[in-house]
Amino acid sequence: MRHISKIRIMVLAVAVVAIAIAAGCKSAPLRTEASTSGIRAAEEVGAAKVPQASLHLQLAREELELAKGLDAKGEKDQAASMLLRAEADAELAIALSHGDAERLEAEKAMAQVRQLRKDNP
């Protein structure tokens, strides 16, 4: 009696695990955190105000939406691959924004030096 009970428990556990695995594979949510946070970061650094960065920010947004659409259609692999595009564009938008700011600051610093030298020959 006791032996039968152990077997039943083991079978039940295997069944529960199998059901869980099956359920997890079928309903795994799309991991958009990286792309979403990348887009938010790009927005926060002012990518919308830098023409080239703005383009890539827009691409990242569109790619995120495409990924969500693909996910909704059940094209999970393609959606995940599309998210990689969104992440890459968001990352590039951030770099371009920083680069533009850096360029402006460099130009400003050099202009200051030129002006200083001009004012104090």
């Binding site: 890539h56 691959s81 599309m82 990689l84 595009r85 992440e87 890459a88 564009d89 990352e91 590039l92 770099a95 371009l96 920083h98 680069g99 850096e102 360029r103 600051e105 460099a106 610093a109 050099m110 200051q112 030096v113």
Partner: peptide, 30 residues
């Protein structure tokens, strides 16, 4: 998609390189 990502990462590296140059120029100017 991987090629697209590789292109963006390359452009990102180029942008960061240019930014480093600008930063160096800025630091030198400062």
């Amino acid at each position: 998609d991987l090629a697209y990502v590789a292109q963006r990462k390359s452009e990102n590296a180029g942008a960061l390189g240019a930014m480093a140059v600008d930063k160096a120029s800025k630091d030198k100017a400062n």
